[in-house]
Amino acid sequence: MFGYIRPFVGELKVRQHDKYKAIYCGLCKSLGRNCSQSSRFALQYDMAAFAYLIGELAGETFEITRQSCIAHPLKVRPMAKDNKTLKYCANITSLLAYNKLNDMWIDEKKLYAPIGKAMLMSGYRKSKKALDLLDTGMTNQLDILHEYEEKSEECFDYPALTTAVIMESIGQNAPIEDEKTKRALSSLLKNLGIWLYLADAADDIIDDIKKGNYNPLTKNGAPYKENIELAKEVMTYSLVQAAKARDLLPLKDAGEFIDNIIYLSLPASADRIYSKLNLN
């Protein structure tokens, strides 16, 4: 699920790329500060992209200072100072990572899952205290996802919606005062959630067939062509709907940033995933 929501760097302005990297570093430090030092391993580029977007909607400017960090002790880099947006995104990172590992343990009994959970536990507890309702919502959606997996649900709308609702809740709980802005942001994130689930499913088709795991884009141990074609259409349409939500957000710099993701980066990722399938 992680690693897809990032900009197409070749079409970003240099200052936007610098800001994005500074936010990524700032998020890492925020994880260490607000969760735990080992929570920093949960850091993802996706969350830095969300922080870029949410920061502007929350009316915050990222104050960037040159610092060093534990991973790069000799080189001083521009890093964003902790603010309420980074704190929020750090907590979300911690919750998502812990719950995802929990999910992997239940689903696939991956051995690294309990080790990862133990590392993230103290950070997770702090984040859960800060965002208890959101965490409960997340675990509920993952339970619902398991039910779909158990009964091998064929219609991908249903499992995709669980990811979508988790993403929507990230918008609904964001530190933004204006309710209309929150609604539009939640809708944007919800649609990105649909895209994410389907991208992940398409990317995992071959692996899931080998391991006999649930995947709505497979049927009887083979790629399910009709569903795959439909998923391709729905993925693009989810970006169409995400763009409609984006149009209702009061954005300037972050607008260009999210446009890059919606119109350039995500379609390119989808093309890459689907072209991989055609070769097999």
């Binding site: 079409e11 729905v234 693009t236 349409y237 970006l239 169409v240 763009a243 119109y263 350039l264 379609p267």
Partner: peptide, 18 residues
């Protein structure tokens, strides 16, 4: 609707590339 919206989206995507 889905097919038409997707086509429009692809055109917008082409326009966005420099």
């Amino acid at each position: 609707n889905m097919r038409n919206s997707n086509t429009t989206f692809y055109n917008q995507r082409s326009n966005m590339r420099g």
